Amino acid sequence: MRTADFDYPLPPDRIAQRPADPRDSSRLLVLDRQAGTVSHQIFNELPELLSPGDVLVLNHTRVIPARLQARKLPGGGRVEVLLLRRAAPQRWEALVGGKGLHAGRRLQIVGGPIAEIVQELGGSRRMVRFEEPIADALERIGEMPLPPYIKQPLRSPDEYQTVFARVPGSAAAPTAGLHFTAPLLERLHARGILLAEVVLHVGLDTFAPVTESRPEDHAIHSEWCQLTPEAAAAINAARARGGRVVAVGTTTVRTLESAARGASPGAAVTPFEGPTDLFILPGYTFRAVDALVTNFHLPRSTLLMLVSAFAGRERILDTYAVAVRDGYRFYSFGDAMLIT
């Protein structure tokens, strides 16, 4: 298996710059793995595509406005700090952009406290210590960390949050969830489709292309996730009654499959909380997930590899070619797939 096997051509004008309005008016390509068929729907038709008793599992993480502007002390040179993970109330793992940013360098956060780089973690990663806890100030001084392929500014920070975002901690949105609206969630409930919650705080590495020639050599970074006992019980009960476990997004897949590794015989998942380094590649045997709602992913990304593991690499690349031909919109603000 080569990383180049997960490449595909994409015209730049297929990269969505704005979310659909309303969100659930985005297009939905439905791929039936067993029949090998593709059909074309609208996302707000999702309730009719699922069955009563299915359980739809949503990632309730919330994106934090993690992009901070700073100045070097002394000198005043511009620095950008992108918070990735809180290690302690005053210590964060971050990407720090600029020159001469070694351990001991002090930074003045614009509108916020002084910070100091205390450890170099490789590349542009740094451990940064702030003079005071900064989490409560992020809504005031931070900016939303949009992916680099989105060139247009947000009209509102809420455009890059799901309607069910609740637990702050992500550096990027779980983008499959961006298609949902409150009325759509109500219709799903009214049809008898169960809703369950996980949390996985998304890091930027999730979206990074694999640069090694063999995917197996790629070092995937861990992400914190949680499946509560209540959610695990609901998922196991739905599966026992013959319902499908429908994961919304690759982050939910990663959480559920991490929780499946310790499940007892006859159960799909067990409660789980902590970091996961699960790297799903073709050949992986799925234990918890029966169907998947997902966006169209970047070439050579770990997300495309995960979706290929779920539905087959050739079938996914053929389906992506259909989506390109038929004008689907790609990436974070793009259209969606339902893989059954």
Rank of each mutant, 00 (worst) to 15 (best):
F6T: 07
Y8R: 04
P11N: 11
P12F: 03
Q17D: 08
Q17V: 10
R18G: 05
P19L: 12
A20E: 05
A20M: 01
P22M: 04
R23Q: 03
R23G: 13
R27T: 13
G36V: 09
S39D: 12
H40F: 07
P47N: 10
L50W: 01
V63Y: 07
V63S: 12
I64H: 00
P65L: 04
P65Y: 03
P65C: 01
A66N: 02
R71D: 10
G77P: 04
V79Y: 02
E80L: 10
A88I: 14
A88K: 13
P89G: 13
Q90C: 14
R91N: 08
K99E: 13
G104H: 13
G111Y: 10
P113M: 07
V118H: 03
V118K: 03
R125M: 13
E131A: 15
E132N: 12
A135R: 10
D136Q: 14
R140C: 03
I150S: 07
V163A: 09
R166T: 13
R166V: 02
A171W: 03
A172I: 12
A173K: 02
P174C: 14
P174W: 04
A176K: 03
G177H: 04
L178S: 09
E186P: 10
R187C: 06
L194H: 11
L195K: 14
H201T: 08
A208V: 10
T211D: 03
R214I: 05
E223V: 06
E223D: 07
T228Q: 07
E230W: 02
A232I: 11
A232M: 11
A233I: 12
G242A: 06
V246H: 00
L256F: 03
E257C: 09
A267Y: 00
F279S: 10
F279I: 07
Y284F: 14
F286T: 00
V289G: 01
D290T: 07
T294I: 02
R300N: 09
L303F: 06
L306F: 04
F310Y: 02
A311Y: 01
E314V: 05
R315P: 04
I316D: 00
D318W: 01
T319I: 06
G327H: 02
Y328M: 02
R329P: 06
F333C: 10
G334S: 07
L338Y: 01
